[in-house]
Amino acid sequence: MSERWQRVRHHPGAVAALFLLPAGFGFVVFYLWPAIRALWMSFTDYNVLRGSGDWVGLQNYQDLAADPLFWHSMRVTALYVVLNIGVQTALALAMAVMMDRLTRSALVRGVLVLPWLIPQVVVGLLWLWMLDPRLGVVNHLLDWVGIGGQDFFGSPAQVIPTLAGVNTWRFVGYTALLIFAGLQMIPRHLYEAAALDGAGEWRTFWRVTLPLLRPVLALVLVLSVVGSFQVFDLVQVATGGIGGQPGGPANSSLVIYVYIFRHAFNFNNAGYAAAMSAVLAVLLAAVTFFIMRGLRGSRSDLA
């Protein structure tokens, strides 16, 4: 027994495999197997209630290509992602740089992530009340300063920017912390050298901070882009009002995951929902690839 153990111990590969076993088990059972099963489902007319489905070949994919609501929800989601990522990343970067240059107080960092600690469903309900066109506190404030009330979740033009705003409010502190961690890896002496060469704050930011932050920014972008594509609970709770159909008004906030959920669990159309998920997975893999490649995310200029 002990002799065999000795042999295992001196074999680094075997030890690594041993340590990877729990995570590997979880990956296979909770990720790989469901993913394969979902892919199989997308070629069937699987019905959740019936618990079975018959092989229909590429039918779901053909239906999807001809489904105007699928493409509509993709466009809605894309708009949301662009707004959300643009505003959130710019704000988070500004906050992180300010923290890095001005204060390293743990209290400030703690306060920044407070909204992130609130569950998304609670966030949705909270903002649904605060942004109610007639009874919400936000419109009372806007009225008071003379801007006048807005429709927010109730307006087809404003609902996606509003959702992006709420999500930014929740995640910006978290994103800022990730970038802040990246900033701390930049050697201090580079800033000293830049100062000696007479570079101002602005020039230092563009010539030193941003290039060296690139790998971290690429990672943050991938994480937040993939996360934004998956927006679901916020839309499900905050749109359509209390008791109404989420995704409204007039499908203007019908993001892809709400549409997938509807097909899977309201229309009992899990095969079709799985096909949509498969297309989305391919799309997200492509987006991730282009971000990592475009920003050369796996290489650092520090080395």
């Binding site: 009340w129 109610d132 066109p133 007639r134 009874l135 109730g154 307006s155 359509g240 008791g243």
Partner: peptide, 14 residues
């Protein structure tokens, strides 16, 4: 009530 108001906290609250 316009549709926007029906998308909020609802008619009973109003």
């Amino acid at each position: 009530t316009p549709l926007a108001d029906l998308q909020g906290v609802g008619y009973v609250s109003l």
